[in-house]
Computed example of a mutant assay.
Amino acid sequence: MTDVPFIAIEGPIGIGKTSLAKELSHQFDYHLLKEIVEENPFLGKFYDDIDEWSFQTEMFFLCNRFKQLEDIEKKYLNLNKPVVADYHISKNMIFAKRTLQDDKFDKYEQIYQILTKDMPVPNMMIYLNASLDTILKRIRLRGREIEQNIKASYLAQLSQDYEAYMNDFEILHPNIPVIRINGDELDFVQNKTDLDLIINKVRQSLNNQLASYK
């Protein structure tokens, strides 16, 4: 784990990860790493027929995120330039476990382990979550055509998967602080006071980490 600030933001689809990453990038003058989403040529087909298109969709995401993180390590972290990302590559396993059949998941996991074993690990996680109603509302508001066919049941299950994943993450990585943000209570896009509250939480965590490195 690098001692250069490397913040990853995670949470279900539509929760506001990219919006918050942009705000933090601007506030702290960190490089912004955005995941490739709409460029995935399989994603629309995936939302229409998950079983048929899940493996292609997940492999596209994995390969592109691997390349992004490889570049980030070389061009930023290794040069002591801080980064804030709107995803953590381990999210791939959340989706793969939910969408892939057993035989394809086994193949996928082998490739995932090979590609990610040397990847840089964030030294701070921000976890955004909210009720299904809030998530659905935010997906509608941002208006991505490709997301309009997402089933509410899929989003609900994904939210549960994320919660379980983050609980395990905190156990497995006790030295990586996790800042949890409840999207039902805080709307950092519409409310500057809520945004300032989150920024102060992040700043305090960064200061604590800096003190621990000295």
Rank of each mutant, 00 (worst) to 15 (best):
V121M: 15
V121S: 14
P122A: 08
P122G: 09
P122D: 04
M124Q: 12
L128K: 04
L128R: 00
N129K: 14
A130S: 03
A130F: 00
A130E: 01
L132K: 10
L132C: 09
L132P: 06
T134M: 11
T134Y: 02
I135Y: 04
I135P: 01
K137Q: 13
K137D: 13
R138Q: 05
L141R: 14
R142L: 03
G143K: 03
R144H: 03
R144M: 04
E145G: 12
E145C: 09
Q148V: 09
I150G: 01
I150N: 00
K151R: 11
A152R: 05
S153N: 09
S153Y: 05
S153R: 06
Q157Y: 09
L158F: 04
L158W: 05
L158C: 01
L158S: 05
S159F: 07
S159L: 14
Q160I: 06
Q160V: 08
Y165M: 06
M166E: 05
M166F: 06
D168P: 08
F169K: 05
L172N: 14
L172S: 14
N175L: 13
I176R: 03
P177D: 08
P177K: 05
V178H: 00
V178N: 01
I179H: 01
R180E: 08
I181W: 07
N182C: 07
G183V: 09
E185W: 02
E185Y: 09
D187Q: 02
D187G: 02
K192V: 11
T193P: 08
D194H: 09
I199L: 09
